[in-house]
Computed example of a mutant assay.
Amino acid sequence: MQDPQRPSPLNPVPPFVIALFLVIIGVEAMFSLGARGMIGGPEAIGWRAGAREDYGFNGDILTWMLQNNVWPTEHLRRFVTYAFVHGSFTHALFAGVLLLAMGKFVSEVFRHWAVLVLFLVSTVGGALVFGLVVQDRPWLIGAFPGVYGLIGGFTYIMWLRLGQLGSNQARAFTLIGVLMGLQLVFGLIFGANATWVADVSGFVVGFLASFVLSPGGFAKLRARIRHD
């Protein structure tokens, strides 16, 4: 018989990561079923497009807020809500699966609240850089900037471990390199827009934020600042 006191070799996925996944898939299920006329009636066909305009992020909105120094809640919420609107079922599924995987990996080292903060700051940071940098201003939707932020946290963990082992720390960036390479290939085959800027920005924000959000990270950073 299995010893009930022995800890499981597999750490469970944090509940909030599962909750985020269920929200993403639930919203996408509503859009997909509505588009097929299975729920919501005839107007349900336009639910996805309406959600993109009501909850998606667009650089033109950011420019308007900066120029007028007006920050309405209905537009500020877009920095987060865009992550829960996707362009297709496949788009949502890939984002959700990566969210579960990266959330589990990072939560094995980071506190659970820190993983959630990492996802949120990467989501906001990715949108902010996207809005400031991209010129053609396509709509930004999907959870990938936040997921790439979790990849940034995973990269930080690997970067530290490789440093402790005396190995080449550049190897920690292999995963993000592979993902960006795949994104480039898909973009060349199927066409792409500049939303990749938000993904890369989310990764950078996640990696940098990990210096503070990792266990003892803020204390180490404060000690280093005082030392310098």
Results as ranks from 00 to 15, higher is better:
residue 50 G to A: 02
residue 30 M to H: 08
residue 33 L to I: 03
residue 32 S to Y: 07
residue 50 G to L: 04
residue 47 W to Q: 09
residue 57 F to Q: 03
residue 35 A to F: 15
residue 41 G to C: 07
residue 44 A to E: 12
residue 58 N to F: 02
residue 33 L to H: 09
residue 43 E to D: 12
residue 59 G to R: 02
residue 55 Y to C: 07
residue 55 Y to I: 06
residue 41 G to R: 11
residue 44 A to P: 05
residue 31 F to M: 14
residue 38 M to Y: 13
residue 51 A to H: 04
residue 50 G to T: 13
residue 60 D to L: 01
residue 60 D to H: 01
residue 38 M to C: 04
residue 45 I to P: 00
residue 59 G to S: 04
residue 59 G to P: 05
residue 42 P to H: 01
residue 36 R to K: 15
residue 30 M to A: 11
residue 34 G to I: 09
residue 37 G to R: 00
residue 33 L to S: 15
residue 52 R to K: 13
residue 53 E to H: 03
residue 35 A to M: 14
residue 35 A to H: 15
residue 54 D to W: 10
residue 38 M to N: 06
residue 41 G to Q: 09
residue 44 A to M: 11
residue 49 A to S: 13
residue 35 A to R: 15
residue 58 N to V: 03
residue 59 G to E: 05
residue 46 G to Q: 11
residue 46 G to N: 15
residue 35 A to W: 13
residue 45 I to C: 03
residue 37 G to W: 00
residue 45 I to K: 11
residue 49 A to I: 07
residue 50 G to E: 03
residue 32 S to T: 14
residue 42 P to I: 09
residue 39 I to S: 02
residue 51 A to R: 08
residue 60 D to E: 12
residue 45 I to T: 08
residue 32 S to V: 08
residue 37 G to E: 02
residue 33 L to T: 10
residue 56 G to I: 03
residue 55 Y to V: 08
residue 48 R to T: 09
residue 30 M to V: 12
residue 31 F to R: 08
residue 47 W to D: 09
residue 54 D to T: 12
residue 45 I to L: 12
residue 48 R to W: 01
residue 34 G to Q: 11
residue 33 L to F: 14
residue 54 D to L: 12
residue 50 G to H: 12
residue 58 N to M: 01
residue 50 G to F: 12
residue 45 I to A: 13
residue 39 I to P: 02
residue 49 A to L: 09
residue 39 I to R: 01
residue 48 R to F: 01
residue 33 L to P: 08
residue 47 W to N: 10
residue 43 E to A: 14
residue 34 G to T: 11
residue 39 I to M: 08
residue 47 W to T: 15
residue 39 I to Y: 06
residue 60 D to G: 07
residue 46 G to R: 14
residue 57 F to E: 00
residue 49 A to W: 02
residue 37 G to N: 02
residue 34 G to D: 14
residue 36 R to C: 10
residue 56 G to V: 05
residue 58 N to T: 05
residue 57 F to Y: 13
residue 46 G to C: 03
residue 42 P to E: 13
residue 35 A to D: 08
residue 58 N to W: 01
residue 31 F to N: 14
residue 48 R to L: 05
residue 35 A to Y: 15
residue 53 E to P: 00
residue 41 G to S: 11
residue 32 S to A: 15
residue 47 W to R: 09
residue 40 G to T: 05
residue 42 P to V: 04
residue 42 P to Y: 04
residue 49 A to V: 06
residue 33 L to D: 08
residue 60 D to K: 01
residue 57 F to S: 06
residue 53 E to T: 05
residue 33 L to V: 03
residue 36 R to L: 13
residue 34 G to W: 10
residue 60 D to F: 01
residue 39 I to L: 13
residue 42 P to F: 00
residue 51 A to M: 09
residue 44 A to R: 04
residue 50 G to W: 08
residue 53 E to A: 13
residue 58 N to K: 14
residue 30 M to P: 01
residue 46 G to V: 04
residue 31 F to T: 12
residue 34 G to F: 12
residue 53 E to Q: 13
residue 41 G to K: 10
residue 45 I to V: 14
residue 60 D to I: 00
residue 32 S to C: 03
